[in-house]
């Protein structure tokens, strides 16, 4: 029987789940856009992104345009982990219906 203990704890944290969800919705996100969408402080967002980057879920790209810009994208491993996370949630919902 699937339950919340089977969910990936790194993704399940509220802030990181929101970040993973946004990253799954587009090819990549600039730091400022993520910050504006999630209404998080710089420090909080950086901490979560660093955790996800260390786990290999998020790729970081630094670009020089008019000014330096850091953008974030899901890696294949991150996309797969997010998909697995969703599958567990769906299994919990299905199991609850039976």
């Amino acid at each position: 029987m699937p339950d919340f203990d089977k969910l990936d704890k790194a993704i399940h944290e509220k802030g990181r789940l929101a970040i993973m969800t946004l990253l799954a919705s587009r090819v990549s996100w600039a730091f400022q856009d993520l910050k504006a969408e999630l209404k998080m402080s710089d420090g909080n967002l950086v901490t979560h992104l660093r955790t996800l980057h260390k786990l290999g879920f998020v790729a970081v790209t630094k670009e020089m345009r008019d000014r330096p810009q850091t953008s974030y994208a899901l890696t294949t491993k991150g996309r797969s982990a997010f998909t697995d996370y969703l599958k567990v949630l769906e299994q919990i919902v299905k199991a609850g219906k039976e």
Binding site: H53, K54, G56, A59, V60, T61, K62, E63, M64, R65
Partner: peptide
């Protein structure tokens, strides 16, 4: 088109 790009590997 960025002027320069650097991709950071996971630590």
């Amino acid at each position: 088109q960025p002027d320069a790009r650097e991709i950071l590997a996971p630590e």
